[in-house]
Write a protein that binds this DNA or RNA. Structure first.
Lengths: 354, 354
DNA sequence: TTGTAGGCGTTATCAT
DNA sequence: ATGATAACGCCTACAA
């Protein structure tokens, strides 16, 4: 049987008010009484009921996190930062996963509102127009992670995707590449993919290079899709000399497609990634990438909720930009002018996870 | 301003009891009244206060999850199963991460007890003796995932690590390997590492093969450590023909060390992994592994809490065994009797994540 | 079918 | 320093 504050009061022969004082430390209690209470607590194995406490306190020390995919290490690394910072701020972390399902997204948004969480951090794959509207009209504090959009009015943490992409494209160009494949994401209204594409385009333009739409493809963050995209480059016998994938997993998919067809990376084709998840370093060749401070992004998101006043968000001043950097590793080299074409395209099975 | 059930009652001109009835559906309400209430709810944008509801219902629809590492995709995949099943059972998922810190482990165990969660699922790296004791004496329902121990008295979900390991070792032997390196984990009292080692040993014994302790090493689930272990095999000029790593990441670390020194996998040395996280398939060569149904393990853990009575746990009958399988891919081949030794061991930098 | 009222376990505001 | 007691928002007998 679970014991309540009343049981403790009875056992220690004091009022419940006194018990409450010793557990909250909200007021002085005579040491000997305090001792009696403490003993009663431990002998009865008493723990305060959180629901009751939250109810009377009118505040919910929990932060909700709404993610698209928990198995993704990108999510995991941000989540890790969120969790750590919540520990220091004494927030509970409530996690829900949508799998990218827009219905679930709407449902959980309402659930979280019902729970009246202290804040909600969203780590979505893509931003649907309907969701954006809903988000803007929510009464709870929402922080958007790594996604942005002109219609959005809630605070956001992200890197400067435009600059990062511009920088990486410049780097590729500096290595002599002119035909640069670009695997982007998130059609829709999402600024994530848009900013990255703009950065790529501008860098090309600044070097008087043509943006050839045959080389600009839409992925969906999956390795399978980028594998297919590169496979089509091979089938079409029209391979760019470098491929800029806007996620590490997509970069790996691209390299795998290349390798499975006897292209060498980076000798024949250079491939670069985006994010710098752990796998970017585990994979061989190690990926040259744009590094995003995922863990820090998570911690900042929590701070934005905990110290809302300090940030003083307005509709103009609502996005916190985190630093990124370009990390040179092994998957990118100088352009190879005489890239060999394989004798003939092969037949491939699709890659799937058993 | 957040509205309560009273506001709704006033707006709809009924009692709060009636409002409560329409939101819970616990009793019949005249359709027109019901309609009025519904309208009031939506116009006031009312959401029931979860704390109040939980308080009066005397139950806490939340399941705690205590993990060691959120960035690990092993954790992510189990968590994903947990989350999904919690959705269907209408549980909230409260996540805490310890980073393997035993103090934090104890702290969170108490926190969860205080919250009186419906159940607590633990996904630890290793099982410390002190923790085991604490776990056994807890009043809340705990489910242990993927770890076991003779001292433990709480329900557990896991695969049969002994059989899995036995099977994999047999497979290696069937490929002609006799000198098989084994990278194990979790010293302590943990059955996880122990069972796997026993399986390896038995398979060797059953084939009259010597278990050479020079080839049995302790990793810590990290890629860095297994990299170092294999590097030492090279330095010692004493390389087994196959390496059985008890986690995929450690297998990748082993392969990377091999590759960085011009050993070919699987031509020169075979390497196999354990778990089958997504990376096992993304990496090249694709890893031959023991597959663990991580997602299902997560779902089962939740079911064990939700349908506790059905499982009828006793101290003898407390572990639920999930099916595993051996998946043949590319990282393991027949033994190479004439494995070349590199001219001389090189100097390596340690692998670190920036 | 609907309303009244008691109680869930806490915290906090009064007195004392 | 301590003890009554009134909230907190909700559910549910019990009455009407």
């Amino acid at each position: 049987m679970i014991s309540t504050i009343k049981d403790v009061a009875k056992a220690a022969d004091v009022s419940i008010a006194t018990v409450s004082r010793v557990i909250t430390g909200s007021a002085q209690v005579k040491p000997e009484v305090r001792q009696r209470v403490l003993e009663a607590i431990s002998s009865l194995d008493y723990r305060p009921n959180i629901s009751a406490r939250n109810l009377v306190m009118g505040k919910n020390r929990t932060i909700g996190v709404l993610v698209s995919d928990l198995t993704n290490s990108f999510t995991g690394e941000i989540l890790s930062g969120i969790e750590e910072m919540c520990q220091t701020f004494k927030y509970d972390v409530l996690v829900c996963s949508t799998g990218g399902d827009i219905k679930k997204e709407a449902y959980y948004l309402e659930q979280f509102e019902g729970k009246q969480v202290a804040g909600l951090i969203m780590i979505p794959w893509k931003l649907h127009a309907e969701t954006v509207e809903k988000i803007n009209s929510m009464t709870i504090q929402i922080i958007m992670v790594n996604r942005n959009n002109s219609k959005l009015t809630v605070p956001t943490v992200a890197i400067d995707n435009y600059k990062a992409s511009y920088q990486m494209t410049n780097y590729l160009i500096s290595k002599g590449h002119k035909r640069i494949g670009f695997i982007r994401n998130s059609v829709d209204v999402d600024f994530f993919g848009l900013d990255q594409y703009r950065g790529y385009k501008q860098a090309m333009l600044d070097h008087l290079l043509e943006v050839d739409q045959r080389y600009v493809k839409y992925g969906d963050f999956s390795m399978e899709n980028s594998y297919r995209i590169v496979k089509n480059f091979i089938v079409d016998r029209d391979m760019p000399t470098a491929i800029f994938a806007t996620s590490d997993i997509m970069a790996i998919g691209a390299i795998n497609a290349l390798r499975d067809n006897d292209y060498k990376v980076p000798e024949d084709v250079s491939v670069v990634g985006f994010n710098n998840v752990k796998m970017a370093l585990l994979y061989r060749p190690r990926l040259t990438v744009i590094h995003q401070p995922l863990y820090s992004i998570g911690t900042v998101a929590v701070k934005m909720i905990a110290n809302k006043k300090d940030y003083n968000f307005t509709s103009e001043n609502r996005v916190v930009i985190m630093p990124h950097k370009l990390i040179e590793r092994e998957s990118c080299g100088p352009v190879n002018m005489n890239m060999k074409q394989p004798p003939s395209p092969r037949i491939w099975g699709e890659e799937t996870i058993e």
